[in-house]
């Protein structure tokens, strides 16, 4: 295992940013989000980002086609991501969200844009020292301080960061920045394991604060499409997109054109099943006419339809929706009556 002392971090960011675009959790106006690092940016390794890092692989809006019509024929130009990047500081829950997004975008038919970004990106995960009040990743058998799917795993040990490559890409990145890394002493390496254990066991304030018994949930929800619960739940939903847009696993998108005169571009952008217009058809028919059907769709998609198709729940327990839903439609609570 390697380590880097915190005094060297500024140098470290600079060195990494020279290799590729470096996405870090940056704080601006009190809000932490992943963004390309620039000199002088305020890096926050203490809090998880508000907007999940899915937007690095699956941007909220991305243009993938430009078109121009002239007198004779239509000209088309495909655009695709070219830039290598390093995504540093992703929490293990969010790393697990990429496994879920991979199911959607990397199985046939493969989504070229997402696949290309997955190839271009190197994923460095930062273990959680102290999961937050609304965290419940352990309810999905995830570890707060370990992400098997990351290329490099990093732990914040106070004075220094521990660094361990976990893949070929991780080895390559380690080789490129080796000059700033030191060998960790055996007892220092052992401290990472002990952090993993204490956070996973939920000891004291170190573990996930929320526990949600998800055992058999998928079975419980089967055949519950028409139960009274949905009738009771939806009234308070404001129909905003906070839960879906802050969710690391929500992946619904729309495709739109923007055109002016004879030219334009085609882009895809996030969409939300909470919006009335989401299922509105050209005929004017809407199969989810009220918020009741929309709220039901969001919960059943994550906890019944997705696991039925792919074998895992589409929730990683990051807690963003629990924290930010203005009316506290708390996913860990609302389905308790069905159980």
């Amino acid at each position: 295992m390697k380590k880097i002392t915190k005094e060297k971090l500024a140098l470290f960011w600079e060195l990494l940013a020279r290799r590729a675009t470096l996405y870090l959790p940056l704080q601006e106006d009190g809000v932490v989000n992943f963004a390309p690092w620039k000199n002088g940016a305020r890096v926050n390794l203490r809090e998880n980002s508000l907007v999940p890092p899915k937007n690095v692989f699956f941007p909220q809006a991305e243009t993938y086609l430009r078109f121009q019509t002239g007198a004779k024929k239509l000209q088309l130009e495909s655009l695709e991501p070219e830039e290598e990047f390093i995504l540093f500081g992703v929490r293990p829950c969010d790393v697990a969200s990429f496994t879920i997004l991979d199911k959607v975008f990397l199985e046939e038919p493969v989504d070229g844009l997402y696949a290309k970004r997955r190839r271009l990106g190197t994923l460095v995960s930062l273990g959680c020292n102290e999961p937050g009040e609304t965290c419940f990743c352990t309810s999905f058998e995830l570890e707060p301080a370990f992400a098997p799917g990351a290329d490099v795993m990093v732990w914040d040990m106070g004075e220094f960061l521990l660094w361990e490559a976990q893949s070929e890409k991780g080895d390559e990145l380690t080789a490129k920045i080796n000059e700033l890394l030191d060998e960790a002493a055996p007892e220092e390496s052992a401290s990472a394991l002990s952090l993993r254990n204490t956070t996973a066991a939920g000891e004291a304030a170190a573990g996930c604060q929320q526990e949600w018994n998800t055992a058999g949930l998928q079975e419980v929800l089967r055949g519950k499409f028409n139960v009274e619960l949905w009738e009771k739940l939806y009234h308070r939903c404001l129909g905003c997109g906070i839960c879906t847009y802050l969710c690391p696993t929500c992946h619904c998108f729309d495709i739109q054109d923007f055109s002016r005169g004879l030219e334009g571009e085609r882009f895809r952008c996030w969409d939300s099943c909470m919006f009335a217009e989401f299922t509105l058809m050209a005929s004017g028919e809407n199969p989810r006419p009220t918020q009741k059907e929309r709220v039901r769709q969001r919960f059943l998609h994550k906890l019944l339809y997705f696991p039925s198709k792919y074998g895992l729940y589409a929730c990683v327990g990051c807690g963003r929706c629990v924290r930010k839903c203005p009316v506290h439609l708390d996913i860990t609570q609302v389905m308790e009556p069905i159980k």
């Binding site: 601006e28 909220q60 404001l238 906070i242 203005p326």
Partner: peptide
């Protein structure tokens, strides 16, 4: 511009 650059267009401000 800085503040609005963070907007995710969730429409919560309108809906409330």
């Amino acid at each position: 511009s800085r503040h609005f650059s963070r907007c995710i267009r969730c429409f919560a401000c309108r809906n409330v």
